[in-house]
């Protein structure tokens, strides 16, 4: 069978997830594309992380399918192709930045030069020999992000990667996400900060486990007649404007 070069790098159909007896996602459908930065926005506890964990294949799901690059999420063949950053930085505190990266690069089988490449991508070249435990929270987040960039994955799933960063750095990282997307990656970035929305190519607004919007930031503002995404979110919640999809 020929592998179709479809836009849908990730296809989610009828995804249902319950965590400790509570339904978090109930029948969610979604297609995510390459060469696109998709923002997943919504308040804390709306199910963003659960959805992202499902995309990576580390979440137990009750029903539905998640296909990544044509394989079920978490398949051995696609694991090296998916970079994942958890909300809390998952790196080793008592190793230096470079030691962390060299270790994860070895696990991924990434080439040697990759460590230097990702260090400069997240702007931590000067901190390479510092212990992670001595870094600030924002720097630790960037180490965790750097690990996800090793091996140039084609899918990047980033759970609140810009929390606690200063505005300059935040802008630079969003620039990086767009560069990675331009190189062909599908980039999904979650945030609970609505003002990050305008930096995305495509916006998914989420509330109580449901997607309440899926369109470009400009399209969302035009449809709701609002000036910013926060107002648009409120409008959608209060008026229950039906979900429209910019692409299917």
């Amino acid at each position: 069978m020929m592998k179709k070069d479809v836009g849908g790098v990730i296809r989610v159909t009828g995804l249902r997830v319950a965590r400790s007896g509570r339904t978090v996602l109930d029948g969610l459908d979604l297609v995510l594309n390459a060469v696109e930065v998709t923002g997943l926005l919504g308040p804390s506890g709306c199910g963003k992380s659960t959805l992202l964990r499902s995309l990576v294949g580390v979440q137990q799901v009750q029903a539905g399918q998640v296909q990544v690059l044509g394989e079920p999420a978490g398949s051995a063949s696609t694991r090296a192709q998916v970079g994942y950053v958890t909300q809390t930085p998952s790196v080793y505190d008592n190793l230096t930045v470079a030691e962390n990266l060299r270790f994860f690069a070895a696990v991924l089988g990434a080439p040697h030069g990759d460590v230097d490449r990702v260090l400069s991508q997240v702007d931590l070249g000067n901190e390479a020999t510092h212990l992670v435990s001595a870094l600030s929270g924002g720097q630790r987040n960037r180490v965790s992000l750097a690990v996800a960039l090793l091996g140039q994955p084609t899918v990047l799933v980033l759970d609140e990667p810009t929390v606690g960063l200063d505005p300059v750095l935040r802008r630079d990282l969003w620039g990086l996400f767009h560069c990675l997307a331009a190189d062909g990656a599908a980039v999904v970035v979650s945030s609970h900060v609505m003002d990050e929305a305008e930096r995305c190519d495509r916006l998914l607004l989420m509330r109580e486990g449901q997607l309440i919007a899926d369109e470009t930031p400009a399209g969302l503002l035009a449809r709701t007649g609002t000036a910013d995404v926060e107002d648009a979110f409120l409008q959608l919640v209060e008026q229950r404007t039906p979900l429209t999809r910019s692409q299917s």
């Binding site: 990576v56 580390v58 694991r79 994942y84 958890t86 998952s90 994860f104 696990v107 991924l108 089988g109």
Partner: peptide
């Protein structure tokens, strides 16, 4: 979370 990260890798 490092175990989860490793298990999400090959």
């Amino acid at each position: 979370g490092t175990l989860e990260r490793l298990l999400a890798m090959p």
